[in-house]
């Protein structure tokens, strides 16, 4: 897969899964999307280990764009990125964008083969 991949990090597994479903309807299998939600015991929250697993599951050498819902999701995503092997870290970005709109826009952009920088910029332009 040469397209940028997407990782959705929500406090809620249902929310992350729902957004993945919406993206799939729009871009089909052109973009790999991982949905990561909930903490390590399955309650609302986020888990750096599973976020890292999500990044690795959809790994693309073109890069991985992460969309997060709230502060803890962002910080735990940072921890997950820092735990990746060094050469991969620079190919993962957290988009400062609303998770639903940002993810849909990012995935659409990624499906056209855009670079990680363009995917991120497009997502971050949502609502600005």
């Amino acid at each position: 897969m040469t397209n940028v991949s997407i990782v959705l990090v929500s406090h809620s597994a249902k929310l992350a899964e729902g957004i993945r479903e919406m993206i799939h309807q729009m871009v089909g299998d052109n973009v790999q999307v991982a949905a990561v939600g909930g903490n390590l015991v399955g309650d609302l929250g986020t888990d750096p280990k599973r976020i890292r697993g999500g990044i690795e599951e959809v790994w693309s050498d073109a890069g991985v764009a992460i969309l997060v819902d709230l502060g803890g999701a962002e910080m735990n995503s940072e921890m997950a990125i820092e735990a990746l092997e060094p050469r991969r870290r620079s190919k993962v970005v957290i988009c400062d964008a609303p998770i639903v709109e940002g993810a849909v826009v990012a995935a659409t952009e990624a499906s056209g083969g855009s670079s990680l920088a363009v995917v991120r910029a497009t997502a971050e332009a949502v609502g600005r």
């Binding site: 903490n39 390590l40 015991v41 309650d43 929250g45 986020t46 888990d47 750096p48 280990k49 502060g71 803890g72 910080m75 735990n76 940072e78 921890m79």
Partner: peptide, 15 residues
């Protein structure tokens, strides 16, 4: 703490 808290406090206290 990072691996077990599962909320914002994990990265904060862990860091």
């Amino acid at each position: 703490l990072v691996m077990n808290i599962g909320g914002a406090a994990g990265p904060i206290f862990g860091t």
